[in-house]
């Protein structure tokens, strides 16, 4: 298979970027999208050109590092699929493929397709944890029973891989799905209750500080999320934040 790639090239955070066109040939349908990028980079290096920088690591859909906006969609055309799990059989031979970085003020471009998502780390640092020391002697694990449904729902929220597809795909570059997934995980569990109100306040405050946009409930994030994180989580966060403001805790 052969493709024409239109790729965003940007030297560094301060430089201007532009779309560049590259032909790539000899692609097989069972290659992953990132392997196709490997082929391109191999060609570029052999031709003495600068290879395209992109983030990737586990290549099995769980680390959350890969982050390409492919043909107008975060992680490409397939649902519940990260870029690394996307295969070239999902594209037509001869197709032109647009590849862009996540675009958001809060995710500045590092180089080419790699962006800086440390804003997500800072949001977790603002309150995405249960304050418990590891050197103490906590209760026996089974001393805290958790209803199975709550545990399962908390798990579903906790499967967020922090890739940023929600921000990338949201027309407002809002991080609500990411933040609400972590808020929800702890809101659903007994362990998260003592800090529930302060946590949601601190995390929302940090989210605002990072310069993400506002949620307008379009629901695009839920559709593009490779882990299928639900909008229910955003509603839960809205509810908890409102409650925290009303009760003034």
């Amino acid at each position: 298979m052969d493709f024409t790639l239109k790729i965003w090239r940007q030297e560094g955070p301060q430089e201007e970027g532009r779309m560049e066109t590259y032909p790539v040939t000899g692609i097989t349908h069972d290659m992953s999208f990132l392997e196709m990028m490997d082929v391109l980079n191999d060609q570029l290096i052999r031709d003495g050109q600068d290879p395209v920088a992109f983030d990737h690591d586990c290549r099995e859909g769980i680390c959350g590092m890969c982050s390409m906006f492919i043909n107008g969609e975060a992680h490409g055309p397939n649902r519940k699929t990260t870029t690394c799990q996307l295969h070239m059989r999902s594209f037509k031979d001869g197709e032109t493929i647009y590849i862009e970085p996540w675009r958001a003020a809060a995710f500045p471009v590092v180089k080419d397709l790699a962006v800086d998502r440390s804003a997500f780390d800072r949001i977790i640092q603002s309150g995405g944890y249960v304050s418990v020391n590891s050197s103490g002697n906590p209760l026996d694990a089974n001393a805290i029973p958790v209803p199975k449904d709550d545990a399962d729902e908390a798990f579903n929220a906790a499967t967020c891989i922090g890739c940023g597809a929600c921000v990338a795909t949201c027309k407002n570059a809002s991080a609500m799905l990411f933040v609400s997934a972590k808020v929800s995980q702890f809101a659903l569990l007994p362990q998260g209750q003592p800090e529930r109100m302060s946590r949601v306040q601190r995390m929302v405050d940090q989210m605002d500080k990072e310069g993400f946009g506002n949620c307008t409930n379009t629901g695009a994030c839920e559709v593009e999320c490779p882990k299928g994180i639900s909008l229910d989580n955003i509603a839960r966060m809205n509810r908890d934040y409102l409650k925290s403001q009303v009760t003034g805790e």
Binding site: K6, M19, E73, P77, R103, A104, A106, T218, G219, V223
Partner: peptide
């Protein structure tokens, strides 16, 4: 604020695949 949150627009965007027209 939302405009400011995405200073550089996408060259190619297929928003209709994941959100309704009116919501956008």
């Amino acid at each position: 604020q939302n405009r400011k949150a995405r200073p550089v627009r996408y060259a190619m965007e297929r928003a209709s695949t994941n959100a309704g027209w009116s919501s956008r």
